[in-house]
């Protein structure tokens, strides 16, 4: 086995064993523990080789916010879904609206979210997003009561297969009031 093929297999085993996104630098330091000194571009080449190897398989390598991750291609998800039968991913519309407002307007306070949604945002909802590690507290606004400011995390992006916030679907533009009504009626 030549050395580059060897490195590809090592990187494959690291990604498979990690089960989470790995940065090139993390892979490099793991290689370092076995006295393998690999430059970052070499590791990237190994990842590209894996991508090619997986083309005709059920696996793929996806680059998300926290690095490179080995995952099962979307089209095979249907076969796995009944296996886990996990309903914890059924998220309410209210929860998705809340995390979306945080994602596009961050950092925001609970009050900011309530202004947009026209409904009070419960502590449980914030708690549930914090527990999921989709949002985190990013300081406090210098206003009466010093409300907590929330922002989305890398885990939020990872879980949606995204690399950066720019990969989120674009937020529809804000129209002048005169045009807005027609738009509202159009839905």
């Amino acid at each position: 086995m030549n050395t580059s093929e060897n490195l590809t297999n090592i990187v494959e085993s690291i990604l498979f064993g990690a089960g989470r996104p790995m940065r090139l630098s993390e892979i490099r330091s793991l290689l370092g523990t076995q006295n393998i000194d690999a430059e970052l571009p070499k590791i990237k080449i190994a990842i590209n080789a894996l991508e090619e190897r997986y083309l005709s398989s059920a696996l793929e390598i996806k680059e998300v916010a926290s690095g490179f991750r080995l995952q099962i291609k979307n089209e095979y998800g249907d076969y796995l879904y009944p296996l886990w039968n996990d309903n914890s991913n059924r998220l309410s519309k209210a929860l998705m609206e809340t995390v979306s407002i945080i994602a596009y307007k961050q950092p925001v306070t609970r009050g900011d979210i309530e202004d947009v949604r026209g409904v009070s945002v419960s502590s449980q909802m914030i708690r549930s997003l914090l527990d999921r590690e989709w949002i985190k507290t990013a300081g406090y606004r210098d206003a009466p009561g010093r409300p907590a400011l929330y922002e989305t995390t890398k885990i939020f992006l990872n879980d949606l297969n995204l690399k950066t916030l720019n990969d989120l679907p674009p937020l529809p533009e804000s129209l002048p009031v005169e045009d807005a009504l027609d738009h509202l009626e159009a839905g």
Binding site: G17, G19, S174
Partner: peptide
């Protein structure tokens, strides 16, 4: 209403994004 609708529509798009453990799964021997 318009402000709300913007975020509502964006949140629907986000809901439709592939999501881990719902649409795709991690290959892991961890």
């Amino acid at each position: 209403l318009q402000e709300y609708q913007r975020f509502k529509s964006a949140s629907e798009s986000i809901s439709n994004l592939p999501r881990v453990d719902r649409d795709f799964f991690i290959a892991s021997a961890a």
